[in-house]
Simulated assay, not measured.
Amino acid sequence: MPGVEHAGGAGRTLCGIRGRYLKLFLHHFQPRAVVDSAQDENEGDGWREYDDAVPVLATTLELLATRGPLGPVWWRYGRPGRHSLLDALENPDNRAAYNQRQKAREKRARQEHREWMRTLACADCGKVPKEESTWHYGPDGSRLEWNRQPGGRCWTCHQDREERLEREAEEQLEAARTANAALRHVGTLTQRNAQTLRNGDLLVGWGSQPYVSEFSRSGDLLFNARFPEGVNSYRAYRFDWK
């Protein structure tokens, strides 16, 4: 009986296809390996084509007698180990199995990409971008690529923040100009003093007037504090905190 192994005499003898004769039939039962080289992330994964292959199974009378024909008693040429009859006839490494592995890889990649995109949520509005980079137009009309970074802002919030900071800077500058202009009309007759600081700035205590001010060498107002009504400073000095 070809392909059946039996016990007898001093040892076990394989009857059927052996040695050089087996090589003549390899192309009939050995599948053709296919590697999907186009998918670099698959690390050489592929499948086997069984369209022109005929499964060749073998077993022994001893195994059939002890475990029955449905037990793991079948060898399949080209595959290691013993299998049940149905498993031996199956082709677990075919294209369908590869497609399942590929779908799992793609699903995992999409999940990892979604998790990465969540780290790019805008720090102000919290919206998750649809793409890692978007296009916008610069002040000169040129097209620029805006790359998102974790903890960053979307382009809209970035523009809003830049405009807000610019407005706040203008408001602070205008407030300093207003305070500087107001101090030009401040005068005091008693308890006033001036201290030249190490960097050349001048600290002024307005005495009977409720102000303490600091001016740069060029006369610009750098700091101004006002005490509550009815409170004066008498003298004002600035020292390092210890």
Rank of each mutant, 00 (worst) to 15 (best):
T178F: 07
R148W: 00
S233G: 11
V204M: 01
A33P: 03
D40F: 13
D124Q: 04
P92R: 12
R238I: 02
G207Y: 02
L85K: 09
N232H: 12
R20D: 14
E62T: 10
Q172I: 11
S213F: 01
P80E: 15
S208Q: 15
Q159V: 08
L64R: 11
L57T: 04
A33T: 10
V4C: 07
A97W: 04
G126F: 05
D36Y: 02
R110P: 00
W47L: 02
E62S: 09
V204W: 00
N94M: 06
V204G: 00
R76G: 03
T60K: 04
N147W: 06
L203D: 00
W241N: 03
C122Q: 01
Q209S: 09
Q30Y: 08
D52I: 07
R76K: 13
C122P: 03
Q149E: 10
E166H: 13
F223T: 07
D93E: 15
E229N: 11
L144I: 01
G205D: 01
T59K: 02
K103G: 08
R167A: 13
K130V: 08
D124E: 06
A97M: 07
Y21K: 10
W116M: 10
A53R: 00
D40M: 13
H136L: 00
D36S: 06
R235P: 01
P55A: 09
G19D: 15
D45P: 09
D124V: 04
G46I: 07
S216R: 04
V73T: 04
A225W: 13
L14F: 14
N147L: 07
F29W: 08
M117L: 15
V4N: 05
Q39F: 12
D51Y: 11
C157Y: 01
V4T: 09
T156W: 04
N91H: 15
C125S: 02
D160C: 08
G141D: 04
A236C: 09
K23A: 15
E112V: 11
R177I: 08
L26C: 12
W74M: 03
L61G: 14
G152M: 03
A7K: 14
R32T: 12
E132M: 08
R118G: 05
E5L: 08
H6C: 04
A38S: 13
V231Y: 14
S213M: 03
A58S: 15
C15Q: 13
W241G: 00
Q209W: 03
G151I: 04
R167Y: 10
L183K: 02
L24I: 10
M1Y: 13
A7T: 14
V35Y: 05
N42V: 09
G126D: 03
E62V: 04
M117T: 02
R108F: 11
V54A: 11
R12P: 00
L183G: 02
H136M: 02
T59P: 02
D240C: 03
P55I: 05
L144M: 05
G16I: 08
R217D: 02
Y237P: 01
P69H: 12
Y237G: 05
N147F: 07
L183E: 03
E90I: 02
C15T: 13
P139Q: 07
R143C: 05
E214I: 05
A104Q: 15
A182H: 11
H185N: 15
L70E: 13
R82E: 08
R114C: 08
R110F: 07
G207P: 02
G207A: 12
N180Y: 10
R167Q: 14
R148V: 00
R177Y: 10
